[in-house]
Design a protein around this nucleic acid. Structure first.
Lengths: 208, 208
DNA sequence: ATTATCTATAGATCTATAGATAATGC
DNA sequence: ATTATCTATAGATCTATAGATAATGC
């Protein structure tokens, strides 16, 4: 988090985080944020000139959080590539499960005000770029070893995983209401296993 | 669409569709809708008592559109199952590509006001339920024939496809800004091929 | 002196309706 | 007679700031 030179500013940030995540920029109310932070409304504009400024503060925070989560995935590269991916996917899935509203928040805010993508580019472009480059290297080695298929590149794999891991959390409320059957395994747990299967089948060479 | 007993009402619905889809409930303005529909603001409240009422009208419309698209997928069941899925996925992917904002719209509105899920349940629960049942039957046959793997059921496959087809459109603006490389094949076209590969690999028996 | 905090309110929207008038159907 | 339409405005928020007062740091 940002340095909390004092705890009222910090309380506002915390409350804003919650409010914006829950309701989005348009649905969020600065009065509500101030109330939840336990400060008068004027304080909010004292520390953060405008609602937009406050939003930006927490938006870059969320992006940094995601970026950090992504980069932590490719730490040690000793193990075989497939095992690496298995670990990475599992950690990423858990992160999304614990923060199900974060991806929706970012996607929603990007779509509703595309100019915000600039903030995103600046903070992740280099990080993710580097991450993809090193993943591509590892994949090239694994391809030469015959460990994985050669018809897939790092970025494609990256988006495969993102799609499979992110979507179920977005879809969870709909699933629970309209599709869930009694007594079945928890949806997300089931999805985690299925996602792994899909990706491993995709990566592993077949003999036909 | 709903019966347009007169064209002003219809114009309002069209404008509302656009406005809500673009900005979401909280960002949408009834004044803006009226302006774009070319009617005075009072007319909007004459035909649709409240903003919420107007929203519901278009929300169920969108859901019906999605439901219709989904049901049209499993029309003829003569062909082998894998081929059936290939066609279904392809059509579904194209529908999402042409209406990229619809899934985000529905997911966003469900998350921001969960009580709306009731509308969704009523209109899709039976449709999708039937669709899944018949898909499950077809899959059981294909499993017995050895045509597809036996470790996957209809609903899991359904969500696999949904995740892979929906996510890329949500992610498109981010991809274009932060990840796209020059001179590469259009993102969505590439994704469509990759999604098919993933699902076919998942369904097709392997020999290890 | 500067930084933090509060009260009170300006000013801008936004939804919704009241009430008058015009158009339409029978 | 009923339905459609317009003008004008009420009433409720919501963001933002002005201006006074208290707390803090040097």
């Amino acid at each position: 988090m940002t340095k909390h030179r004092n705890n009222k500013e910090h309380a506002i940030l915390e409350a804003a985080r919650q409010e914006f995540l829950e309701k989005g920029y348009d649905g969020a109310r600065t009065t509500s944020i101030a109330r939840n932070a336990g400060v008068t409304h004027a304080m909010l504009h004292y520390y953060f000139k405008t609602k937009e400024d406050l939003f930006c503060s927490i938006f870059v925070d969320f992006i940094a959080q995601i970026g950090k989560n992504l980069t932590s995935l490719f730490e040690d590269s000793q193990k075989p590539f497939v095992e690496l991916i298995e670990n990475a996917m599992s950690m990423h899935f858990d992160f999304i499960s614990e923060n199900p509203k974060v991806p929706l928040f970012i996607i929603r805010e990007i779509w509703s005000r595309p100019e915000r993508i600039e903030m995103l580019r600046q903070s992740i472009s280099s990080t993710v770029g580097g991450l993809l480059a090193s993943a591509q290297q590892a994949m090239d080695v694994a391809k030469n070893n015959g460990e994985i298929n050669s018809d897939i590149d790092a970025i494609t794999l990256f988006i495969d995983i993102l799609a499979l891991n992110v979507f179920p959390s977005l879809f969870l409320p709909i699933y629970n209401t309209a599709l869930s059957q009694d007594g079945e395994k928890p949806f997300l747990e089931k999805r985690k296993q299925e996602n792994l299967k899909l990706i491993l089948n995709r990566l592993t060479p077949q003999s036909k």
